[in-house]
């Protein structure tokens, strides 16, 4: 295929252009299929596949939280106090307030978390996630499940939902 950046010819199936080294666009078969608009209108939060949220007690430090985010490969943690959710800590919060400024081992998560985060419910339309993330600028939102537990959805889950071909 022809590279859209530098027009070099590449053999079919190449991932990277031989001419300029850029990633080649995924072939058409890997583009999301079907009616994406329909997927936006019809989906529910449950169809995003919310994953169990990872949580950390409010009196732990940002260093503990960062360790946990690395280990679990997540971008946000629920902050709990006596078993109840009191806030959310995102990687952005950890960086804004701490990186290069303070010792993460000395800052409690309660000092940089967002208290009382907006939440979604599993049976709400997926458009609510678009709306909340767009208006609030969030990349992660807690989802209240019917059994009382809390899961998390991310902006990446929205992309995966749209990208999944049916």
């Amino acid at each position: 295929m022809k590279c859209p950046d530098c027009a070099a010819e590449n053999i079919p199936g190449s991932d990277v252009c031989v001419g300029c080294g850029h990633d080649l666009p995924d072939p058409a078969r890997r583009l999301p299929k079907g009616d994406l608009a329909e997927r936006v209108r019809k989906g529910t939060i449950a169809s995003l596949g919310p994953r169990p949220a990872v949580s950390v007690p409010y009196d732990r430090t940002v260093a503990d939280a960062v360790d946990l985010m690395r280990e679990e490969k997540v971008g946000a943690l629920l902050i709990t106090k006596a078993g109840k959710v009191v806030g959310i800590l995102t990687e952005r919060d950890a960086l804004r307030e701490v990186a290069g400024l303070k010792d993460p081992a000395k800052v409690p998560v309660s000092a940089v978390m967002h208290a009382d985060p907006d939440t979604l419910r599993a049976d709400e339309p997926v458009t609510h996630a678009f709306h909340h993330m767009s208006v609030g600028g969030y990349r992660h939102m807690p989802v209240l499940l019917d059994d009382g537990s809390v899961a998390m959805v991310s902006s990446r889950d929205l992309l995966s939902y749209l990208a999944a071909s049916d």
């Binding site: 530098c6 666009p25 583009l31 999301p32 990446r156 995966s160 990208a163």
Partner: peptide, 28 residues
């Protein structure tokens, strides 16, 4: 990366498959 002329559909596919949240858009 993607060219500025790529479509929203292509960006969704690439960001999802490569697990990236930030995509530089480039010229030739």
């Amino acid at each position: 990366t993607l060219p500025l002329t790529a479509t929203v559909r292509e960006a969704i596919a690439l960001m999802d498959s490569k697990h990236v949240r930030n995509l530089p858009l480039v010229d030739g």
